[in-house]
Computed example of a mutant assay.
Amino acid sequence: MTGPPWLYGRPTAAELVASVADFLDNEVRAATDGSVSFHARVAANVLRTVERELTDASAAEAVGALTELGFPDEAHLAAAIRAGALDAREPEVLTTLRAVVRHRLAVAHPGYDPAD
């Protein structure tokens, strides 16, 4: 998205994605069976993941942890660990890694929290 969400009005991208996911889950799956029904379910699940990414407010924690450690993104952190510049067992590195993984899980697998 190139502008703030309010710029585009309603429905938002997340609302449109949610509507299509609901259509696939409710209408298409009810009217089909076999592989078409299965693929409609898979497509709806993909759209729900996209919806969670579009509405996610928890990314700030992961971004903040990376920034605090001095990295612009996860790829740079991973490269530093691979190069031996950082020890992944250090407490501040572990905290950052946990924040990044927790954020990814919140989007990819909502309701799952390894800390629970």
Rank of each mutant, 00 (worst) to 15 (best):
P5K: 09
L7V: 04
T12G: 04
T12L: 00
A13V: 05
A14L: 01
L16N: 04
L16F: 08
V17A: 12
V17G: 05
A18I: 06
A18D: 12
D22K: 12
F23E: 13
D25M: 09
E27I: 09
E27R: 09
V28I: 14
A30Q: 07
A30H: 04
A31R: 15
D33E: 13
D33Q: 11
D33P: 10
D33T: 13
G34P: 12
S35I: 02
S37E: 06
S37C: 11
F38W: 14
H39C: 08
R41Q: 12
A44T: 10
T49V: 06
V50S: 06
E51K: 11
R52G: 00
L54T: 05
D56Y: 06
A57M: 02
A60I: 05
E61D: 06
E61L: 02
E68Y: 04
L69G: 03
G70M: 00
F71L: 01
P72W: 06
A75N: 11
H76W: 14
I81L: 01
I81W: 02
R82Y: 09
G84H: 03
E90P: 07
E90D: 15
E90H: 14
P91L: 13
E92F: 11
V93A: 05
V93M: 02
R98N: 07
A106D: 07
H109F: 05
H109V: 09
G111L: 02
Y112A: 02
P114L: 02
A115E: 10
